[in-house]
Amino acid sequence: MLESRLEQADLLKKVVEAISGLVNDCNFDCNDSGIALQAMDNSHVALVSMMLKAEAFSPYRCDRNIALGINLSSLTKVLRAAQSSDILTLKAEDAPDVVNLVFESSEKDRISEYDLKLMDIDQEHLGIPETEYAASISMPSNEFQRICKDLMNISESVSIECTKEGVKFAAAGDIGTGSVTLKQHSNVDKPEQSVEIDLSEPVALSFSLKYLVNFTKATSLASKVKLSLSNEVPLLVEYELSGGNSSYLRFYLAPKIGD
C-alpha cells in the first residue's frame, strides 16, 4: 500500500496546476523511491517528467509498485478543497480503485477526506537518454516567464542562442522583432537572481512559445529554472521541487527544425 504525507498540500496543487495544461490523464507511478510521472502532450511535442522523492514526504511508505491512473482535471477539483498550508496525505491500497486524499489544517481542527476514482491508463514510457548538454543556463524562474510571455506578443516561435557572450532569446513576427539577451552575472546578496551559463559549445535552436509559456506555469514552484540545450535535441526546462532532496519537475520540448 501507499501512504505518503506532504507537509504542504501546496506542492501537489502547484505541480498539478503546472502540468494540467499539457496533460489530461496520467499515471502517478509510486514505488519505494517516491512518486514519479511521465507524460506527453496530445501532439507529442512536449514531455513532462516529475519525480517526488520519498524524502519529500514524511513519512513515506510504498511497499510495491502502484500506478495511480488519474484524470488531472478531477484531481484539480479535489485539490481545490485543500488549503495551501494543509498537510496532505495520499493513501492507496495495492491494485487500487481509488486514491484517498486527506487534508489536515495546520491547526489540526479540521480534517477533510476525499476518495478520487482511478482510471486504467495504458501509458507507454519513453526512454530519455542521458545527455551532456552543450549549454545550460540557470536563471530566475520569473525572469524566464517574463521573457516567454513578452516574446509571445511578437511571434509564436523563439530562437534561443547561447554563446560565450550570453544567451539571447529572439522573436520575429508580423509587427516586428524583439529580443532579450542575458549575460552571466552573480548576485551575492540574492543568489536566486543570478544568471549562470555553462557552455561547452554554442547552441542555436527554435521553439514554440506556446509550450514554453505553458511550462512557466511551474514558476511559483521554484525561484530558479534551469534550461539545458544541445543542437538538434529537445530543450530541457527544469524546476527543482521542495528544496534539496532532488525532486524535480522537468519539461522537454522538441525543437522546430529547418526554415
Partner: peptide
C-alpha cells in the same frame, strides 16, 4: 520559424 518536430523522434519507447 521551422517545422515542429516530435518528441518521439528523439526519445524511444521503452
Amino acid at each position: 520559424g521551422g517545422k515542429q518536430s516530435s518528441i518521439l523522434g528523439f526519445f524511444g519507447k521503452k
